[in-house]
């Protein structure tokens, strides 16, 4: 079952197409990463999914129901963690969560229970009565998340939830995202931090100029540019290094030796470093350094869009 289906959606502002004929599906149980530079159309897409903007063209379905026809159903099943802190400074942490959860129709003891649960979940249980003014950046971010999850949505959309916070809070938030996912939530995650996306997302889409230019698991994405990795091994002496023997190791595509550096090209998905090292030891080569360069998302992004994610 797809939690989210976007079909040929276009959003134009005047002449400018912020989202351009985009199609995308998010399956249940995924942590779906949304990668794109500023202005690539991520936020516009997210805003359309959460009914903040209306699509100019195309259909969006949440749990199989069109959001234009069943807005309440769609909204009730989505929790959005906005990029900017969206909390009231004059309300305590508890009141903030309670207010937003109340908007989703929770009442009475259930509302209280879910509010407390959400605060516990983000580790602010003991700060329930404090005002956000006294919170650190990370704590505010966590409260920002709590406000979005108290009504137990099926789909949680997190728009840059870790901007500008300390590593500790970031780890905490990443852990929470995983935990929410284990509890059955499907998550859409956008971030400027490639490592975060690589670490937690099960599927990733790269967005540029309102279009999805690549989509898949991180392995699939990495394979877009190349399916080989470079292994460079520095040796003290070129003599006795059995280049031919190295070539016969499974996965090795090419091998050559160049100025004391064995340069191997290997299939990226095969882990053959052990065999290579063993072979070199058998041939009594004197290894000085080993360096492996596998393709990463950053380079994939750079190759496909011509710019860095944080440009």
């Amino acid at each position: 079952m797809n939690v989210l289906d976007i079909r040929n959606v276009t959003k134009t502002f005047g002449d400018f197409a912020a989202v351009d004929n985009m199609s995308l599906s998010v399956r249940e149980g995924e942590i779906f990463g949304f990668l794109g530079a500023n202005g690539a159309g991520k936020s516009t897409t997210i805003h359309m999914v959460s009914s903040l903007l209306k699509a100019t063209k195309g259909d969006i379905e949440i749990l199989g129901k069109n959001i234009a026809k069943f807005p309440r159903f769609a909204k009730a099943n989505i929790g959005i963690v906005p990029q900017d802190l969206a909390i009231y400074e004059q309300l305590t942490a508890y009141e903030n969560v309670r207010f937003f959860a109340g908007l989703y129709g929770l009442r009475g003891s259930l509302l209280q229970e879910r509010t407390e649960e959400a605060l516990e979940f983000v580790g602010l249980g003991d700060k329930a009565k404090s005002f956000p003014k006294s919170f650190s950046g990370g704590m505010k971010r966590r409260l920002n998340i709590a406000c979005a999850i108290a009504h137990r949505p099926k789909l949680i959309i997190m728009d840059e939830p870790t901007v500008g916070i300390d590593p500790h809070s970031r780890n905490y938030i990443l852990q929470s995202v995983r935990k929410l996912n284990e509890m059955g939530c499907t998550i859409i995650y956008t971030s400027h931090y490639m490592e975060e996306v690589e670490e937690i997302c099960t599927r990733i889409a790269i967005v540029d100029h309102g279009k999805i230019i690549a989509e898949g698991t991180k392995e699939q994405l990495k394979a877009i540019v190349t399916d080989t990795k470079e292994i460079w091994i520095g040796v003290r002496s070129e003599e006795g290094v059995g280049i031919e023997a190295l070539r016969s190791i499974p996965g090795i595509v090419s091998a050559r030796i160049d100025d004391g550096m064995i340069k191997l090209q290997s299939k990226a998905e095969i882990n053959n470093l052990n065999e290579i090292i063993q072979q070199l030891i058998r041939s009594r080569a004197d290894i000085r350094s080993v360096e492996e360069q596998a393709p990463n998302l950053e380079s994939v992004f750079l190759t496909l869009t011509g710019r860095n994610l944080r440009d």
Binding site: S50, R72, K75, Y88, L103, Y104
Partner: peptide
Amino acid sequence: LRHTALRLTAAPL
């Protein structure tokens, strides 16, 4: 200004 408009619009309200 507080960005809470986003939350209010996203809520089934």
